[in-house]
């Protein structure tokens, strides 16, 4: 007797409404488009996430590692009812946000991952993700955790999230926090931005291809290299630091 194991392993996705793309102007004047990434775009995204697994700063390493697995799980049908939104500036990947629908009333936020630091890129992407859950999926609440202090300030404090500590979050079983529709409505006029429809040229550029980030997050600079070089006759550490910065360090 033959068994199609894949049919057993693969969860049956609930049809979810698509996220209608939006765009916003950043503080530097650039336009950022946020749109839903199709499943077949995941292989184009993964190579830009993987290098950040090795960036030991602001928990980029663990978030990148977890996000990588979530994207892979989405691509290979090993997670149920997941979605992925991408934020792009001139085609460049600026942020990735993902999550899933637990049931018609409850959403589960997975990760908010900025590949372009500053300019509220991550904050705008997170707000857009919440909009998807509350306004598009019509859910009553979204369960959220933070892995970094930056996330805690951006989500728990800025949105004044409610505690749902009795509900373990799917990310590590950590106590959950909740963004309710009421909290989202309070934040709507201050934290949630963006316009529709996205101008054709912006959307076309975004869909034409997910370009690599030109200035991805990096680990801390080794400012002690000069100190060490005083004790190191070969000055290896200083030479290495200069190399990293294209000779810009005196």
């Amino acid at each position: 007797m033959s068994v199609d194991l894949e049919k057993i392993l693969r969860p049956v996705d609930t049809p979810l409404p698509k996220f209608p793309a939006k765009y916003m102007t950043l503080a530097n004047g650039q336009e950022m488009v946020v749109r839903q990434a199709e499943r077949d775009e995941i292989p184009d995204i993964l190579p830009h996430v993987e290098p950040l697994i090795h960036v030991e700063r602001d928990f980029y390493n663990i978030v990148a590692a977890r996000l990588y697995s979530e994207l892979l799980a989405y691509y290979t049908y090993r997670v149920q009812d997941e979605y992925v939104l991408v934020a792009q500036i001139d085609g460049e990947l600026a942020a990735i946000v993902n999550g899933r629908s637990v049931n018609p009333d409850v959403g589960m936020s997975y990760h908010t991952f900025s590949l372009r630091r500053g300019l509220r890129v991550g904050a705008h992407a997170f707000a857009t993700k919440m909009e998807y859950h509350i306004d598009i999926l019509k859910q009553k609440e979204v369960l959220i955790v933070a892995e970094s202090g930056i996330g805690f300030r951006r989500w728990m404090i800025e949105y004044n999230l409610e505690k749902r500590f009795h509900i373990p979050h799917e990310l590590g079983g950590c106590p959950s926090w909740s963004l309710t529709k009421e909290l989202f409505d309070k934040a709507r006029n201050t934290l949630v931005v963006g316009r529709r429809p996205v101008p054709e040229h912006l959307l076309e550029k975004a869909k034409a291809g997910i370009l690599p980030p030109s200035d991805p997050p990096k680990g801390p600079e080794d400012l002690l290299a000069a100190t060490r070089s005083m004790l190191d006759s070969t000055a290896t550490s200083l030479i290495e630091m200069r190399r990293k910065h294209g000779g810009k360090i005196k």
Binding site: T25, A27, R120, H124, T190, V192, V193
Partner: peptide, 8 residues
């Protein structure tokens, strides 16, 4: 921009 009050 329409987003300025959130950006800034």
């Amino acid at each position: 921009s329409p987003e300025a009050s959130t950006n800034n």
